[in-house]
């Protein structure tokens, strides 16, 4: 599956993965699923859910305290 992943405030990445979950997309842009979430239409989605959209945003939630 081909997905365009926009990391909010950073670059966009083109990702090709077979049957990915949203957590796989976070890992594919070199982030840890414990520090970021995927937004679909502006709403967070669970990282274990299968990807159903070909364009998503990844929001980094953790950048220092």
């Amino acid at each position: 599956m081909h997905v365009t992943v926009h990391v909010v405030g950073e670059d966009a990445h083109e990702v090709d993965l077979p049957d990915p979950t949203y957590g796989d997309l976070i890992a594919a842009v070199d982030l840890n699923p414990h520090e970021a979430t995927v937004l679909v239409d502006g709403r967070p989605v669970p990282e274990d859910a299968p990807v159903e959209h070909d364009e998503v945003r990844v929001l980094r939630l953790i950048k220092g305290g």
């Binding site: 414990h34 520090e35 979430t37 967070p44 980094r60 939630l61 953790i62 950048k63 305290g65």
Partner: peptide, 20 residues
């Protein structure tokens, strides 16, 4: 930590997110 951050995001709380 991620859940604290997700809570702040969902509640639209004013937070400053940057590394010192």
């Amino acid at each position: 930590e991620k859940e604290v951050a997700l809570y702040a995001h969902l509640r639209e709380l004013p937070t400053h997110m940057a590394e010192c």
